[in-house]
């Protein structure tokens, strides 16, 4: 079912859907990193005009499904309390690459290890995904190279037009929500077929061991400052640490909270163990670790590359390190060091 929703029709849907939260890229005026710039991030959509179409978000939608700080447990003495379960449906407007990114997170949080992560699953199950059509990709995108330019796993897809949206509805929930609104129409979803950033991803089964210690990583030891922005802005970086906070005592019982907080392989302390042992001291080896995870070892485990080519890491690096270019460098080395591709 395809429909045209005028702005006011769209806004009416937002306001009449009870028990549903609408989330998408919004603009926080003046909250950008630099003065007089805006911060584009995921947040609540209250009207059509809240949705930002012309800029990429700084952080991805990851922060909605894997909150930056998330309470795991509260303790009072030996009583362990789990946080309350919420039930609002979360309608999330996002791009094709970011839908793929959620699937990358699913692999880890739902399918890796002995059981699904209950906190992740509890939110994931409530999400309804709405694809925002990318007519023209942004400057740093390389979704085509990562195969994430197209997507089919969404409940509805929208195209922004001057006075409203065109919506292509693919599932029953959206059909029932939107039935009675808007006017029937025809349009074909467009997916970008070309990016400004020309990226070539190596397709190999086993990374040659000499590439782990190759001198190409030394350059990153000199350039990377371990700020972690590539990790935090990445829609697929999923690492976290767990912290306990003590709130003192309440009638002889200790009150404490256990929470998890995003962590990242570029950040200092990521591998530190009690007693002082640590791995990947040099930033170059952190870059290697991240790069291989994104374009190689994740694929070995889960069958698809982790990187979705959203280009956020290239947008945010204060040292202007291009991950896209790093992929190309690895690809060149892989091609140099073998005569025929093995995949």
């Amino acid at each position: 079912m395809k429909k045209l929703l005028q702005k006011d029709e769209f806004d009416a849907l937002l306001s009449t859907s009870s028990g549903v939260q609408f989330l998408g890229p919004v603009r926080l005026k003046g909250r950008g990193r630099f003065s007089d710039t805006d911060l584009i991030k995921y947040g609540q959509i209250k009207s059509f005009t809240d949705i930002v179409w012309d800029s990429k978000t700084y952080l991805s939608a990851k922060e909605l499904i894997l909150p930056i700080t998330e309470t795991l447990l509260d303790f009072t003495g030996t009583t362990v309390v789990q946080p309350p379960v919420e039930d609002a449906i979360l309608v999330l407007f996002l791009r094709a690459c970011d839908i793929h990114a959620i699937e990358r997170l699913d692999a880890i949080f739902l399918n890796n290890g002995p059981s699904p992560d209950p906190y992740y699953k509890q939110k994931r199950d409530r999400f309804k995904l709405v694809l925002m059509e990318c007519a023209v990709p942004f400057d740093s995108c390389f979704c085509v190279a990562m195969g994430t330019n197209t997507v089919s796993n969404f409940g509805a897809a929208v195209r922004c037009i001057e006075d409203g949206i065109l919506i292509d509805i693919r599932d029953e929930w959206f059909t029932s929500q939107i039935a009675g609104s808007g006017t029937d129409t025809e349009f074909e979803l467009q997916f970008p077929q070309q990016n400004g950033a020309d990226v070539h991803v190596p397709h190999i089964k086993e990374m040659q061991e000499q590439l782990f210690t190759h001198e190409m990583w030394d350059e990153y030891s000199k350039r990377c400052i371990a700020c972690g922005r590539c990790n935090t802005s990445c829609p697929t970086c999923s690492c976290f640490s767990v912290h306990d906070i003590s709130y003192g005592h309440d009638s002889n019982s200790k009150i404490a909270r256990r929470q998890r907080v995003w962590d990242g392989c570029h950040l200092d302390g990521f591998t530190d163990m009690a007693g002082g042992a640590a791995f990947r001291i040099e930033c170059g080896s952190r870059m290697r670790f991240k790069t291989f995870h994104k374009i190689y070892d994740y694929r070995k485990r889960y069958g698809v590359n982790m990187c979705v080519g959203c280009g956020r890491c290239d947008d945010v690096c204060p040292e202007y390190i291009s991950f896209a270019n790093c992929i190309n460098k690895v690809n060149d080395l892989v091609n140099e060091s073998r005569s025929t591709p093995d995949e």
Binding site: S35, N231, T232
Partner: peptide, 19 residues
């Protein structure tokens, strides 16, 4: 000075838009 806003990797620090 706004340095905290500049270095924060998650924009947990932002500027109050008032100058």
């Amino acid at each position: 000075c706004g340095e905290c806003v500049l270095v924060c990797p998650t924009q947990a620090w932002t500027r109050n838009p008032q100058k």
